[in-house]
């Protein structure tokens, strides 16, 4: 049985008032277990759409996506998602949000373990002083960190993250990038990570996927041959700068094309 994520000939069309819209066309990608794949590309090129197919929220019109040989037919706890719009539960406090998954029957966790795990991840995202706050009292970046902690807490095999660090300031973003790599050192996971930051994608990934739009498709897959563990200091090495510039060039080309 084939391990990892296999995306085979995936196409998605949306029905809109003005006709059908081809959001994804013939997307093929094989992701090995433990890989870190970043997806970059101009806004509206279908990144979130692809993630929704992997999460199981959206059925592709053609082709299919499989995890460990099983076709993805719906959402499941083995695939954790950090949503572009955060999607933290506004009627729950910060602690309750992070503990939500752990309290479900699917992740049966002992009570004292729950507190421990929640505290650990709240500290990691730097929200230990806001445990009892409701989401409406938090800034965008803080909400995003709650969403990240909530997804990390249930320790899924696959993490699907849609611009998870987008709302964070540069320092917090850097810290969250390193923390994510630390977590992956401890627990092997497959990550699909959407971002607009080429530097971020280069720093985190084993491979960076550059997408093109109209129709949404994969333009290029660029391997990042920099050994892990990576620290922030790697960002200034010649190797890093070179790969980063290469990806930047492709992304910029796609951006130009989209504007024409």
């Amino acid at each position: 049985m084939e391990q990892g994520i296999i995306i085979e000939g995936v196409g998605v069309t949306y029905q809109t008032a003005s006709g059908t819209f081809e959001a994804l066309k013939d997307v093929n990608l094989k992701i090995e277990p433990g890989e870190f794949i970043s997806i970059v590309g101009p806004s509206g090129c279908g990144k979130t759409t692809l993630l929704n197919v992997l999460a199981g929220f959206l059925k592709s019109n053609t082709g299919q996506a499989c995890l460990d040989g099983k076709p993805i037919n719906g959402p499941g706890p083995e695939r954790g998602v950090v949503f572009q719009q955060y999607a933290i539960f506004p009627w729950l406090t910060v602690v309750e949000n992070v503990a939500f998954g752990l309290k479900l029957a699917a992740n049966k966790t002992a009570h004292d373990r729950i507190d421990e795990i929640v505290d650990h991840f709240l500290e990691l995202v730097g929200l230990q002083d806001f445990k009892k706050s409701y989401p409406k009292e938090l800034s965008g970046g803080m909400k995003q960190r709650v969403a990240i902690a909530r997804a990390y807490a249930v320790n899924p095999q696959v993490l699907l993250m849609d611009e998870p660090f987008g709302a964070l300031d540069a320092q917090t973003r850097q810290f969250m990038q390193e923390s994510l790599l630390d977590i992956l050192e401890e627990e092997k996971k497959t990550v699909v990570f959407i971002t607009h930051g080429v530097e971020e994608a280069t720093f985190l990934s084993t491979r960076v996927v550059v997408m093109a739009s109209k129709p949404g498709r994969i333009r290029e897959v660029i391997p990042i041959d920099i050994p892990y563990p990576r620290k922030a200091s790697v960002k200034t090495t010649p190797d890093f700068v070179k790969i980063r510039a290469e990806i930047d060039k492709v992304v910029r080309e796609e951006f130009q094309k989209q504007r024409q």
């Binding site: 999460a55 706890p77 999607a87 933290i88 539960f89 729950l92 479900l104 699917a106 997804a151």
Partner: peptide, 25 residues
């Protein structure tokens, strides 16, 4: 729908969806 989706990716079953996501809203 996004809250239901979030709950599903965390592993909520139908009953938990009803009690923990739909009722509170």
């Amino acid at each position: 729908p996004i809250y239901g989706r979030a709950a599903q990716t965390l592993g909520a079953n139908n009953w938990e969806m009803f009690r923990k996501i739909i009722l509170p809203q």
